Computed example of a mutant assay.
Amino acid sequence: MLHEKTLDHLLQIKEIYLEPEVYHMPRGKEILAKYPDAKLIEVASHWKIPELFGFEGSVEDWISNKRNVLILGIKKSLSARANSRSSHWIAPSESNGCTMSCSYCYVPRRKGFANPITIFVNIEQIIRYLQRHAMRQGPKLQPDFIDPQYWVYEIGENGDCSADAAICDNVKDMIHAFTKIPNGKLTFATKFVNRELLHYDPQLKTRIRFSLMPHKMSKLVDVRTTPISDRIDVMNEFVAAGYEVNVNFSPVIYYEGWIDDWVLLFAELNDKLDAKTKEQLTAEIIFLTHNEQLHEVNMNWHPKAEEVLWRPEIQEVKYSQTGGRNVRYKRGFKKDLVDTFTDLVELHLPYCKIRYAF
């Protein structure tokens, strides 16, 4: 059974902004039929809705947009971008935006702040592109730290695929398609438990990465997400259902008592994960990166979180690959934090491999 109560809390679609072509697309028709009472608002482009993407107002309106607004569009630019950490390629998005409101999230920085889910309805075109792209790569002859056998495609860079799957079958269609792509594999990270994914039969061709952090910190900064214990509770089931299940320890946030809180989380993993899940477990470790503009917005709706996220005395400027001006923990200090954390993982989760830590 899907967690209907949780989904109802996250998604109550009342307004749908849509590009005119959506009316003629099979996936578009399916979604519109699912929300027959929603108010439809035509827009020339899913990118240009100033009243949504430029909004930086009160938390009440912010959450209302997250819960009540859906955007439907056509993904016009199809390209796979090379990557070197969680995947070999970033796939063309089947969506962007998110119904959750994590206070550290990088997605709002790039596309405005009150940013609900946009679903791209030309999913068949996206899948055909990925099939052709994977074919051009040929067999993966050399194992690497990303995967020993397959070219891995990230499909959740700009949103949460588990939440998207509550709206339509885009994610299901992609998972099914990759079971038939001989040299390819999907991956995405999630903070939301959607048990419907257990019925998708991924045949070990999809890697789902559950994002985890200490409970106390998650309650402060992981706004509108599935509780950490609930994410851990389903990991064995997802392995049994044919997924590779990894964990993202992300973001790792420094604060008084942070080590003790992580040790408690590791103990919970040790207690709850079965032997099969432990044997295949790999972690990706990502320390907090923040952003001054996001900090200023958060101060208007969630200032308590900024007490741990915005720490100028221990942070320095970092420019992203796209030229964004962010802040991270100071270089020497961060190296010590990374070393401490990886040592903790190796001590408390000796079966858990580390794909990368930064």
Rank of each mutant, 00 (worst) to 15 (best):
P214M: 09
S103I: 15
N300P: 00
F120E: 00
V245L: 11
F113Q: 07
N298A: 12
A267I: 10
R195L: 15
P20V: 10
N300C: 06
E19N: 01
R331D: 11
H302L: 13
N298E: 14
F249N: 10
A283E: 01
F113D: 01
I13C: 00
E154G: 05
L344V: 04
E316I: 05
L52R: 01
K75C: 10
N65P: 01
G323L: 08
M235G: 06
Y150D: 05
I126S: 05
P139R: 14
V43S: 00
V234W: 04
R209K: 09
R325F: 03
Q203W: 02
I31R: 00
T118R: 01
N246M: 03
M213G: 11
F192E: 02
V338T: 11
I49C: 06
S86R: 11
V252C: 11
I146R: 02
D37I: 00
S211M: 07
Y243W: 06
P143A: 12
N298H: 12
C98S: 07
V239R: 05
N194L: 04
R110V: 09
I354G: 02
E94T: 13
V308W: 04
V245P: 09
Y243Q: 08
Y319V: 15
S250C: 12
V221G: 04
E94Q: 09
L141W: 10
E15A: 00
E30D: 12
N248W: 05
T118D: 00
K39Q: 01
Y319H: 14
K304P: 01
D61G: 06
K335T: 13
Q315N: 05
G112M: 08
R231H: 03
E256I: 07
K75S: 08
S218V: 04
F55W: 06
G257P: 02
G257D: 01
D230A: 09
N96T: 10
Q149E: 15
H88C: 05
N326E: 12
N194P: 10
R110N: 07
N170K: 02
G73E: 04
K76G: 08
S64E: 09
L288Q: 07
K272C: 06
R355G: 09
T6V: 09
E154C: 11
K304A: 13
N115I: 11
D37N: 05
C98M: 06
S320A: 13
A44W: 02
P251M: 08
V239L: 05
M25I: 14
M174A: 03
V121M: 03
C161V: 08
S218D: 02
L265K: 05
A177M: 02
K75E: 11
S218Q: 01
Y351Q: 05
R136V: 13
Q315G: 04
D37V: 00
D173R: 14
R195K: 15
V43Y: 00
N270C: 13
D336I: 13
W301E: 09
N158D: 07
P350M: 07
Y104N: 09
N122K: 03
S64H: 12
L11S: 01
M174V: 01
W301Q: 11
I127N: 03
D160Q: 03
P108F: 03
I181K: 10
L269I: 15
N326F: 14
L294I: 12
H88Q: 08
R328Y: 03
